[in-house]
Nucleic acid binder design. Structure first.
Lengths: 201, 201, 201, 201
DNA sequence: CATGAATGAGAGTTCATTCAT
DNA sequence: GATGAATGAACTCTCATTCAT
C-alpha cells in the first residue's frame, strides 16, 4: 500500500508542478505563447514527459481552468451564510476583487484570457454557477425593495462588470497613471463608492 | 524638393497599406495569428519588403496601438462640445462601449492585451490623455453638485471600470450565459441602469 | 522439470499473445502503423514488458513473417493430396489468391513489403519451399504432356507472376477502375481464363 | 529577361533535385519513411527550404506520381503506331517490363507503393488512361478473332496481372531463388511463354 | 526599391527504447 | 516478471528575420 500511495503522491506532485509551470507561463506570456516545450524546460523535464501526465496541451489548460473556478466558487459560496442580501452582495464584491488580486493568474484564466471557444462552452458551466450566486443574491435584494425595480440580469451584469472592470484594469496594468503607493487606498474607496451608489437606489 | 516629397508620400502610403493589412488581419484572425508573412501576402509584397518600412513586427503593433488610441481619443474629444457635464459623461460612456464593440481588436490592443511593459510606458501617454478627459468631465460634474462630494479619481476609476468591465466581458466572450439575441437590448439596459444610478447620487 | 516447463509454457503464451496483437494491428492499421505502444495497450501490458519477450520491434516482425509463411506453406501442402497435377496446379492458384485476399497483411509481408535484405535471405527459405511445391507440380504437368515442352522454371515463374500480379494489384488497390461490386465476379473470370489458357497449351 | 529566365531555371532545378532526392528515399525506405527532413538532409538544405518549393509532403508525392505516369504513358502511346493488335499487345508487354526494370522507382510509385487513397483516386486518371490503351488493343485483338471470345476486361486484367506480377517480383526482390546471372534470359523466356500461350487461344 | 532564397528556432506530438524499482 | 517514468530523436510545419542580388 505504501508504495502505491507514494507513487500516487508523486504522480500528483508532478501534475501539480506541470500545472504550476503552465499557469505561470500562461500569465507571463499569454495563452498562445505557452508551449509544451516551455513548460518542460521550466520544470526541467523533457517535452515527452509532459505527455505522460496530460494527453495534450488543451487538457492542461482545461485543468487549470477547472481549478481556478472551483477555488473561486468555494470563496463565493462562503458568502451564502450571510443573511442580509445587501451585505452579502457587498461581501461578494469584496471577495471578487480580493480573489483577483490574490490569484491574478487564475483570474486571468477565468475571465480575461482568449481561449478556444470550443473549450469555453463546456467549462463555463462553472462560470454559470458563480453567476447564478450573484443573480440569486441580487434577486433577494430586489425582493427586499433594494436596487429599484429592475431586471435581475441587468443589475447582475452591471455589478459584475463593475468589479470585473476594476479587476482587469489592475491585472492588465492599465491603472499606471495612479502612483503605485496610492493605488490600494484608492481602490478601496472606489469599491466603497460603488457599494454606496448601489445602496442608494 | 518635389522629388523628396513624393518619395516621402510614397513611403507613407506603403506604411499605411501595411498597417491597414495588419489591422484587418488583427480583426479577422486575432492578435496572435497575425504574421509578417500574412501581411505581406495580403498586400501582395514579399515579407522582406515589410522590413524596409518597419524594423520588426513589434513596431507594426506599436504603430497600430498608437493609431487605435488616436482614433479613440478623437471620438472622446468630440464629446467636449457637450456643455452639460452629466450629459457629456453619459455620452462618453456610450461612445466607449460603442468603440469597443465596433473595433474589438483595437479595444483589445488598448485595454486588454498584456503588452510588454517597455511599450506600455510610452504608449500610455495617449491613455493618460483620454483618462484626463474623463477626469475633467467628472470634476465638472462634482463641481455642479452631482455625484456626491467624492474624490475625482475615485469616481473616474469607478466609471471607467464600469464600462471597461462591460466591454471586456463582451469582447472576451464571457457573457455566454445570455442568449445572443437578447444581449444587445440587455446591454443597453445595463448602460442605462449605470447612468441612472450615477445620476441619483 | 515441472516448474521450468510451466515457465516455458507461460513464456510462449505471452509471446503468442504479443504476436497475435501485433498481427491484428497489422491487419487493422497496416504495417507502418504498428507501434510497440499500441501492441502493449492491446494486450494490456506495459511497453517495457514487450522487451522481455522480444529484443526489439524487428524481431516481432520477423516472427510474424515466419509464421505467415508457415501458414501459407501449410495451405499449399494440402494440395499435394490431389493426384492430377493440372488440377493440383489450379487448386494451388486458387489457394494463392484466396490466401492473399483473406490475409492481405500476411501476403503483403511475404510478397510485397520491401524488407531489409539481411532478413529476406533467412526468411526466404520458407519462400523457396513453397516455390518448390509449385515447381514440382509443374514438372509433373509437363511430364504428363501438358503445358508444352517448356523449361519448368519458366512456366513456374509465369504462373506465379500471374497470381501474384492479380493479388498485389488487389491488395495495393490498383484495380480502382473496376466498380467494387463487379470485382469479385471479374476476378473469378480472370482466374478461370488463366487456367483455361494454360490448359490449352 | 535573362535574369527571370535564369531564376526560373534555378527554381526548376531545385524542384528537380528535391523530387529526385524524394524519389530515391521513397524507393529506399518506403513511402512512410520518407520525411521532409531526410529529403532536406539529402540535398543539404534546411527542411524549411523544401516548403519554398512544395506546399507539403503530399505535393511532392503527387508530383512524382504524375511524372512517373506521364513517362509511362508516353512509352505506351508509342505502340499505337503498330497496326497489328497482337503485335502491339506484345510490344506493350515488353515495354511494360522494360519500363519497370529501367525505372524501378517510378514503377514502384505507380503500381506498388501503399499511398494515401485520397490521393490515389485523383491520380489514377492517368492510370485509367494507360489501362485504356491496353483495353483498346485487346478489344481489337478479340475483334480480329484472337484471344477467344472473352470479356475484354477479363483479358486485360489477366494480361496486366501477368506483367505486373513479373515486374513486382523482380523489383521487390522475390526471385532470389534464381541465380542472378540466369535471370535476364529466364525472364525473356517467361515473357515469350506468356505471349505464345496467349496467341494460342 | 523590392525580393527570392534561405534558415534557425520553435511549435505539438509520437515513438522505440532504457532502467531503476 | 512487470512496469512506471523518463527521454532523445524524430516527425510535419510555420515563423521572423537576414542577405545577396
Amino acid at each position: 500500500m505504501g508504495i502505491t500511495e507514494r507513487r500516487n503522491r508523486e504522480k500528483l506532485r508532478m501534475r501539480r508542478s506541470i500545472l504550476d509551470a503552465a499557469m505561470k507561463l500562461f500569465v507571463e506570456d499569454g495563452y498562445d505563447n505557452v508551449s509544451i516545450r516551455k513548460i518542460a524546460k521550466r520544470i526541467e523535464y523533457s517535452p515527452a514527459t509532459i505527455y505522460l501526465y496530460f494527453t495534450d496541451k488543451d487538457e492542461i489548460f482545461f485543468q487549470l481552468h477547472q481549478e481556478a473556478f472551483s477555488k473561486f466558487l468555494a470563496v463565493q459560496k462562503e458568502t451564502l451564510k450571510i443573511q442580509n442580501p445587501m451585505a452579502r452582495l457587498a461581501k461578494q464584491g469584496a471577495n471578487y476583487l480580493e480573489f483577483a488580486q490574490k490569484h491574478p493568474e487564475h483570474y486571468d484564466l477565468m475571465f480575461i484570457i482568449k481561449a478556444p471557444l470550443r473549450k469555453l462552452k463546456t467549462e463555463w458551466n462553472c462560470g454559470f454557477e458563480s453567476f447564478d450566486i450573484l443573480r440569486q443574491t441580487i434577486a433577494e435584494c430586489i425582493d427586499q425593495g433594494h436596487l429599484g425595480n429592475n431586471n435581475v440580469d441587468v443589475v447582475a451584469i452591471h455589478v459584475w462588470a463593475n468589479v470585473h472592470g476594476l479587476a482587469s484594469l489592475i491585472i492588465r496594468d492599465r491603472l499606471a497613471m495612479i502612483p503605485e503607493d496610492l493605488l490600494p487606498q484608492l481602490l478601496q474607496e472606489v469599491m466603497a463608492f460603488g457599494t454606496e451608489t448601489l445602496a442608494n437606489r
